[in-house]
Amino acid sequence: MRFFTPCIFFILSVMGDCVAQLSDAKAITSENVPSYPLSLYKAATVDAQNLYNGRLYYIYDSQEEEFQFFDSRKLVKGTVYYDGQRYEDIPMMYDIVRDELIITHANGYENILLQSPKVKYFSVHDHNFKRFESGQGINADMKTGFYDQVYMGKTKILVRRTKQRQEKIVEKKVIALFPDKNFFYVFKDGKYHSVHSKKSLFALFPEQKRELRKELREQKNKFRKNREKAIVAMVARYDELTKP
């Protein structure tokens, strides 16, 4: 586990103090920056070089009310397992239109696009996303990409979160829209089953159908109002009912 960010800021602070003591107003170069703090900076960032070695990412449609990111258009700190290493407290955004993870460079000014095949998992906004290859850990008919692991009990639930960019014209101005659509998959009997309605969910648990209906009523979970909450509640209830 790498905890490099605090170290970077400390070293940069040391470098700044040293440079401030220079007698003239020369530009900061490798010649007038003390070699000891610089060597420390290089040592502290060596483990993060792979993380920040990606293409620049430019935020598109940044002025629109709707956005292409998961949950928020703001950078928030999260955890990512990338290229064999785990990094914490990394500012990031998840572009679910393109199914790509974006982080901010250590310099704080540039957004970097991570290579999706190198991202094993990441956590952001209290959600845990894991990358699956089609046919490997998921069904062959499920797309390769990031899936939100919303419930990981005996029975598991994955959510494929998507948005599609659309346009509408308002007063001769093109407005970008990003309606979202979530696909739910419940793991049972060795494979994932697509669930999109109460009927499709009850079909997976016919023997517990009556109890699951009762669960919805007692918890006042409206399937149409909050499908995700209702699915998680019923699957969790199913796990309780089928404990050995």
Rank of each mutant, 00 (worst) to 15 (best):
M1G: 15
F4C: 11
F9D: 13
V19A: 15
V19C: 12
D24C: 05
D24N: 08
K26L: 09
I28H: 08
I28Q: 09
I28S: 07
E31L: 13
V33F: 07
P34A: 12
Y36N: 13
P37H: 05
S39I: 08
K42R: 15
A43W: 09
D47C: 14
A48N: 08
N53I: 05
R55T: 10
Y57F: 14
Y57T: 06
Y57P: 05
Y58R: 11
D61T: 01
E66D: 01
E66I: 04
F67P: 04
D71F: 08
G78W: 03
T79G: 05
V80N: 03
V80D: 00
Y82Q: 02
R86P: 02
Y87D: 09
D89T: 13
M93A: 06
M93K: 14
M93Y: 04
I96V: 05
V97K: 00
V97D: 01
D99V: 04
D99W: 04
I102P: 03
I103L: 05
I103C: 03
I103H: 08
I103G: 04
A106W: 10
A106M: 12
N107W: 06
N107R: 06
S116Q: 10
P117A: 00
K118R: 12
V119K: 01
Y121K: 08
F122G: 00
S123A: 12
S123C: 13
V124C: 03
H127P: 11
N128Y: 15
F132G: 02
S134Y: 05
Q136P: 07
Q136R: 14
G137N: 01
I138Q: 01
A140I: 09
M142I: 04
K143P: 05
K143V: 10
Y147N: 02
Y147M: 03
Y147Q: 02
D148G: 02
V150L: 07
M152R: 09
K154G: 11
R160D: 08
R160S: 10
T162Q: 09
R165E: 05
K168M: 08
K168R: 13
V170H: 09
V170F: 07
E171W: 07
K172S: 12
K173R: 11
I175M: 03
I175L: 02
L177A: 05
V186G: 00
F187N: 08
F187S: 04
S194K: 15
S194I: 09
S200Q: 15
F202I: 06
A203C: 07
A203H: 07
L204A: 04
K209W: 06
K209I: 06
R210H: 15
E211V: 09
R213T: 07
E218Y: 11
Q219K: 14
K222A: 09
R227W: 11
A230Q: 01
Y238C: 06
E240Q: 12
E240C: 06
L241F: 00
T242F: 05
P244S: 02
P244L: 03
